[in-house]
Design a protein around this nucleic acid. Structure first.
Lengths: 91, 91
DNA sequence: TGCCTATATAACTTTTAGGTAACTTATTGT
DNA sequence: ACAATAAGTTACCTAAAAGTTATATAGGCA
């Protein structure tokens, strides 16, 4: 499972720390991600067992993503990365 | 500075946590890295001010790498990542 | 004379990540 | 009829990351 070495995975996970969220909303939180990369990223995270995908059988579609326990175990790392990145961009 | 999104940077930094080390030794700790990627990676880390490069003017060449203070500030993140990776590969 | 050393670079190729744009789906409301 | 909706897929293309192979260096020593 490559977490590092990918551009989007950590970012998606980071936003999921806030709790379950609809697909579109999550995507909006990451303005620069393309539609394709978003889907691809969440699919991989699902395979990695870091997130769950909940599909509601309605029209138009409704899909929610949320962290699994395994995903939640990344919380401190993700937050540290975020903090570190912000501190360093001050330089 | 892209730490995330690169394959080798975190690994190189992780090995430097043990202290200053000669170029060749460091490279040996990462068996799968190609000669080119090793050089390229340390050069970028140097530009990022995460590591220092010390050149000894001898023949054959002797070069040492060590973390800067900024590099050392990554310690807890790097160690967490390492620990997490090991725990998870148990699955 | 010519080989060995450790570190690095250059030229080139392959692989993978990522982006774009068009299309699908099924139901509701007009 | 048909437009709008949210989520996703597909085919295609480009750019960036990484790998491979060959070469340079300069002094010590057989």
């Amino acid at each position: 499972m490559k977490l590092i070495g990918t551009k989007w995975k950590p970012l998606v996970l980071f936003h999921l720390l806030e709790g379950p969220i609809r697909s579109g909303k999550l995507q909006n939180k990451i303005p620069d991600i393309s539609n394709k990369m978003f889907t691809q990223t969440v699919r991989e995270l699902e395979k990695d067992n870091l997130i769950n995908r909940k599909v509601f059988p309605v029209v138009p579609p409704k899909v929610e993503y949320e962290l699994t326990e395994k995903g939640k175990s990344l919380e401190s790392i993700l937050k540290s990365l975020d903090t570190w990145g912000k501190e360093m961009s001050a330089f």
